[in-house]
Design a protein around this nucleic acid. Structure first.
Length: 1201
RNA sequence: AGGCGUAUAGCUCAGUUGGUUAGAGCGCAGCUCUGAUAAAGCUGAGGUCGGUGGUUCGAGUCCACCUACGCCUACCA
């Protein structure tokens, strides 16, 4: 017996379903059911375990769960391994904040081991937190117990053994950090953590392969550097941190030697780099102007084009290429060089000179007094250049060209003479190397000037005071020509927001000259959705990317397995495994043993060079964290340790991730690591792909399409959305969304705190202590209103009548063939939906499925149930097999629908399923499961429905669709002729061009008649006599035949006598004469439409034409009034909250004879419809309500008998 | 600066190989239906399909140029 259904209370229902799954261990049973079946390999992209989960994470995680559920229900074995991203600067940054450590030195003083342990703790704690949130999402993974993870976090750093219960329920005991290093291994199960030894060691395998192919090198490069973090930033990171910045830019004189009163005019936006000037570069092909200042006779050289060049003219008008990068309001338009010089007293042009003629001129640098400027070999000294100092190199040089052949020095923004500081700029560095000049690299790791820079020593390059000092010094020397504020796009630290400086660094790189191999692999993969052209985007990135900088001078991360001879940097080796390291170790293994292979422990290990015999130390750098995420197709599937398992699961069938950014991050690292890992194992690019299909999706935005930020309180935490909007609603919304388009989620009102009812009780703040706030979402509300509520109402309708009738779903089935056509129709529609479900999930297109399911729910609710209500209302009769057929049909449809929707809305589908097959109300609590039930214990243990070809009847589907179209047309006619549906009309005539449709209409005449409330339905061959026909040429067929005549045909055909064209409607061709041209038209060549007449309303659509008689007789009017009367009585019953079966007495008052006559005539009908025992007219009804019956007013009251 | 993409109703977007009167959802206005429904249905207003030119009997659709916007990449010393 079904439990009574009342309030939907979706969110409480979700809590109940969660409880049901956990007490019944449904997920474990699902895995057992599918063990040994064909595999579907999903690879989870690790989520950064550094903060709680927000609604932006939930989109991707909903995809992951929905596809996993679909493939589980279709009988596949899955891995169910979630991943946490654990290592890297983002964790360090948060831990630094937490511990109040501002600099790398502070971390060193605090103790790297303590710091690293704290990083581990933070990751474990947020992994626990995200696990709980993911479980609330209904995300079925083999989760570690959150509290067990927290226990590990607490004990990290202690050698005391702790007992840990693995995800598979096994109890293991050891020191916490040793347990932590093994998390996610194939024996324990549970999420993978990228800090695990397995993960790190597999990256070593990768790096060893790179090394073997000669791709690992140490590079000296000038790179963006953060003084605060003490670290260089890779290309990937810089892309995320660019900002519009205003710098003071300077025009400066470089006085020429041996040329009295003559100077080069140079320009810079980074004044601090003038301290490190070495050369001045020109373009030999440009014309340079020689001008003399009127004020003091000084002569300047600069590029001719630059004199009147309108600097940043376009940017001033249009900004810098992004909406948020518009020209700063407080900065005026930049002056031209000519303006600047005029303001200083004017100038005279003395002539022009080619750049080539200037090359070789010697000049005096702006800061030649600094000791670094006079240091042989530059600063730091370069061994091969010990014969010169920076001052010796102060020459005008040829700027040269880049790899694409473009000149480095161009006219435009500056002066055409480029201040060159090979220690402070990327291009400068390259020029320096080419020309063999020394470099000066003034900054230490902390971003401060080092010794040898006089008053600058100890100053921070990005401080304003440093710029002030430069300006002051230049003024003293008379070298400063002009200062201005100059806006441009400048790299910043993506975490701290600090400006980056360009600094000469030595970092470790992978030479990516094997990019073509990666591109070949990329082309073997399906990139979805098609519209974003992911494959080309990835290939484009691979074409343009530079060598991969894999090192970072930090503390928490992969220990790069590179051991180097401190005396000779060319003497280095890459170690491929811990076993190899142990074998090679000559010192310090005892420090590492028992600890994880992280800093600081691993730094103690030294090996001996096989080449030179020197003792090698590990470089102190840690690895780029995208290595951590990119190695997972190997590490998590057991490439090194469980090769047989790896062979079964690699490559992954599917990955999905938010795509902006990932083309250069995760997707890139997966592809390159996999290509390298497999280079010595196969030549087939298809065998090297880490995954077969990728589904990318865009970003979650607020309701107005703006990004949501944690910092300004607009970001929505997962629980805020889950407990206010409902998870099923969210999931439907995510799966409904076009993945190529940003999802406009909703708004969080940070000024409106709310208490949330969670499965664990009421909360008013998150675990991190921020208040939980009101969240609104229009798309979520719409989803709930359009799909979930109608689904619920359909279910509630079924249950509440089935209870009254004591319907038992296990009763003998009425054979399908004996059921009414409408039953067979909804079952057939259901088969179509099943088919679409399989197709959509297999094509990773959830939007298609969810949209189709929505249409089905509409058909179910607004056609099947509405049209069948009377079958369910009929009084109880055990022999009423038609009624039983209706119940059985509806039961089967809703149960199947739940199975189909289980991957989408796992909670609601479970709740409905439980009541429909076990009579269990999940919210009310647990009940026993009948032992003999043929039904699986949970909807999620069901096999996914398969199409039953016997029930699929395309023709019936089409037939009903036609009837629905006719009904729609009929409603249109009623609307246009102002005839309400309750007013019966005499006749509808229908005609259509397609014989199939004609037959359909005849078969479903009863339905159409009923829906449209007409007395007679006639299928006719044509509507002659009722309507006027209008003829138009069918351009698609006539166009190709008559070409240029078409214009005339279009104009003249409609004006012809309809009689002359009549044969066309009978299927015959007609030859007509149009101003001298003879035209033969086939029936297909014309389109016929109808025009209204006074007594018939007409409408047409897709070849179907209907006409409804609008002539009213007194009988028809009276019947319409009767229906109005019934309708108002019903409303009164509803208003009085009467039960459906209550019998009533009706009293009414009216002046109108026609109403009285109508009631007499229709008394029986009214009484039956409204369950009235009496129907009495009174002079006045004081307690009644005035209503309109037809054109007349009636006062009406009802009371229970 | 280079590459890619987009431009259609107040908003968000569909629009097949070129074809007749350019659609949907939301919002707005009106009407209708309703004893499962917190719904739903129908109608309407609102469009020079970014602009200019071209190909064609015919262009929202194809081509060229222009404008605006977005994304990616690079970058101004």
């Amino acid at each position: 017996m079904f439990q009574k259904v009342s309030d939907s209370d979706f969110i409480r229902g979700e809590h109940s379903a969660l409880k049901f799954w956990s007490t019944r261990e449904i997920f474990r049973k699902l895995r057992e059911k599918n063990a040994g079946r064909p595999k579907w390999s999903f690879l989870d992209g690790p989520i950064t375990a550094n903060n709680p989960m927000g609604v932006h994470h939930a989109w991707g995680r909903t995809y992951k769960d929905a596809f996993q559920r679909y493939f589980a229900m279709t009988g596949h074995e899955l891995r169910y391994q979630n991943g946490f991203d654990c290592q890297g600067l983002w964790v360090e940054v948060e831990v630094e904040k937490q511990l109040g450590l501002g600099t790398k030195n502070a971390i060193n003083d605090y103790g790297i081991d303590q710091f690293v342990n704290e990083c581990k703790r933070r990751v474990l704690n947020f992994a626990a937190r995200q696990t709980e949130q993911s479980q609330r999402l209904g995300y079925w993974m083999e989760w570690d117990s959150p509290n067990e993870l927290r226990k590990l976090a607490e004990n990290v750093g202690s050698e005391e053994p702790v007992e840990y219960e693995t995800a598979r329920g096994e109890k293991v005991a050891d020191a916490a950090h040793r347990l932590v290093s093994k998390l996610g291994n194939p024996d324990w199960g549970g999420s993978y953590f990228t800090f695990s030894t397995e993960n790190n060691e597999t990256i070593w395998t990768f790096l060893k392969k790179c090394f073997t192919r000669g791709k690992v090198y140490r590079g000296h490069d000038v790179m963006p550097w953060s003084g605060r973090s003490g670290s260089a930033y890779s290309q990937m990171e810089i892309a995320d941190g660019r900002k519009l910045t205003v710098h003071r830019s300077l025009f400066v004189k470089f006085p020429l030697q041996e040329r009295e009163k003559e100077s080069l005019l140079v320009w810079t936006t980074t004044p601090w780099t003038l301290t490190s000037n070495v050369a001045a570069a020109v373009n030999p092909e440009l014309d340079y102007l020689k001008v003399q200042m009127k004020r003091d006779g000084q002569i300047y050289y600069f590029a001719k084009e630059n004199l009147n060049y309108k600097r940043l003219d376009k940017e001033f008008k249009e900004g810098f290429g992004r909406p948020e990068w518009s020209w700063p309001e407080d900065i005026g338009k930049l002056k031209t060089l000519a303006q600047i010089l005029k303001e200083q007293g004017g100038f005279e042009e003395l002539g022009t000179i080619k750049g080539a003629e200037m090359v070789g001129w010697k000049y005096t640098g702006p800061f030649d007094e600094l000791p670094a400027q006079s240091q042989p070999g530059g600063y730091p000294p370069e061994k091969n250049l010990m014969d010169k100092t920076a001052v010796d190199c102060h020459l005008v040089v040829d700027g040269g060209r880049d790899s694409k052949g473009n000149a480095h020095v161009v006219a435009g923004e500056g002066t055409g003479i480029v201040h060159t500081a090979p220690g402070c700029g990327d291009v400068d560095h390259k020029i320096g190397i080419e020309l063999g000049i020394v470099g000066i690299a003034p900054l230490g790791e902390n971003g401060l000037f080092q010794e040898g820079f006089g008053e600058f020593t100890g100053r921070n390059a990005i401080d304003q005071e440093t710029v002030d000092l430069v300006i002051e010094k230049l003024q003293e020397k008379g070298l400063l020509v002009s200062v201005e504020k100059y806006p441009h796009i400048y790299p910043h630290c993506w975490r701290t927001g600090d400006e980056l400086v360009f600094r000469l660094v030595d970092e470790w790189f992978i030479d990516m000259d094997w990019r073509e191999e990666i591109k070949d692999v990329t082309r073997q993969i399906d990139w979805l959705p098609d519209s974003i052209d992911g494959q080309n985007r990835e290939v484009e990135w691979l074409t343009n990317m530079r060598d991969w900088m894999i090192s970072k001078k930090r503390f928490w991360g992969l220990a790069l397995p590179i051991w180097i001879n401190p005396e000779d940097p060319s003497d280095f080796e890459v170690i491929g495994s811990l076993a190899e390291l142990k074998e090679r170790a000559v010192e310090g293994w005892d420090v590492l043993e028992g600890n994880t292979p992280h800093r600081p422990w691993i730094d103690a290990v030294k090996i001996k060079s096989e080449k030179t015999g020197a003792v090698l130390s590990r470089i102190e750098d840690v690895g780029n964290p995208w290595l951590d995420a990119g190695i997972t197709p190997f590490s998590t599937m057991g490439y090194n340790t469980h090769r047989d398992m790896w062979e079964k699961w690699y490559p992954a069938d599917f990955v999905t991730e938010c795509f902006p950014g990932q083309f250069r991050n995760w997707f890139y690292s997966l592809l390159s690591l996999s290509t390298m890992m497999r280079y010595d194992e196969t030549d087939d690019p298809a065998m090297k792909r880490p995954f077969k299909t990728l589904l990318g999706h865009r970003l979650v935005m607020d309701e107005l399409g703006r990004p949501m930020h944690k910092s300004d309180g607009t970001a929505i935490w997962f629980e805020e959305a889950a407990e206010q909007l409902g998870v099923d609603t969210l999931r439907w919304m995510y799966l409904n969304q076009n993945p190529a388009v940003d999802l406009r989620f909703g708004l969080r009102d940070k000024d409106q705190p709310v208490a949330l009812e969670t499965p664990d009780g009421t909360i008013t703040e998150t675990q991190e202590g921020s208040p939980t706030c009101k969240v609104t979402s229009k798309p979520a509300d719409e989803i709930r209103r359009q799909f979930l509520i109608p689904l619920w109402n359909s279910y509630a309708f079924f249950v509440n009548y089935a209870r009254l009738d004591e319907f038992n779903p296990n009763d003998e089935q009425v054979p399908y063939a004996e059921r009414q056509e409408i039953d067979r129709w909804i079952l057939s529609r259901l088969q179509t939906l099943i088919q679409v479900a399989h197709e959509s999930f297999q094509a990773y297109d959830t939007s298609r499925f969810v949209t189709t399911a929505g249409q089905f729910i509409d058909d179910l609710s607004n056609w099947y149930i509405r049209r069948n209500r009377r079958r369910f209302w009929r009084s109880k009769d055990v022999n009423d097999s038609d009624k039983r057929a209706a119940y059985q049909t509806l039961h089967e449809v809703i149960v199947t629908l739940c199975q189909l929707l289980a991957p989408v809305i796992p909670f609601l589908s479970e709740r409905i399923y439980q009541n429909l097959v076990f009579g269990r109300d999940l919210v009310a609590g647990e009940t026993e499961t009948p032992a003999d039930s043929k039904w699986p214990e949970s909807v999620h243990l069901c096999d996914y429905p398969q199409v039953n070809p016997e029930l699929l009847d395309e023709e019936l589907n089409a037939r009903t669709a036609t009837a629905q179209r006719v009904v729609k047309l009929g409603h249109q006619v009623r609307e246009m002729t102002n005839m309400r549906v309750r007013q019966p009309l005499a006749e509808i005539r229908i005609t259509c061009s397609d014989p199939g449709q004609q037959a359909a209409i005849e078969q479903l005449a009863g339905v159409i008649q009923d829906e449209l409330n007409v007395k007679k339905i006639t299928a006719v061959e044509n509507l002659d006599g009722i309507v006027q026909y209008a003829f138009k040429p069918n351009l698609k067929t006539v166009g190709p035949k008559y070409g240029k005549l078409l214009g005339k045909i279009r104009k003249e055909l409609p004006a012809l006598d309809p009689q002359a064209l009549a044969p066309l409607r009978a299927g015959e061709s007609v030859t007509i004469d149009l101003s001298g041209d003879s035209i033969t038209l086939e029936p297909d060549d014309v389109l016929v439409s109808t025009e209204q007449s006074s007594e018939w309303g007409t409408a047409d659509e897709q070849g179907v034409q209907v006409a409804i008689s609008t002539v009213l007789t007194d009988e028809l009017i009276a019947e319409g009034m009767a229906r109005d009367f019934v309708r108002h009585v019903q409303q009164a019953r509803k208003d009085a909250n009467l039960e459906i079966e209550d019998r009533i007495q009706i009293r009414y008052a009216t002046e109108e004879a026609r109403v009285r006559e109508m009631v007499e005539t229709w008394q029986d009908y009214i009484s039956t419809e409204t369950l009235a025992d009496s129907l009495a007219r009174e002079e006045s009804v004081e307690d009644g309500k005035s209503v309109n019956v037809g054109d007349f007013s009636v006062v009406l009251a009802v009371s229970v008998s």
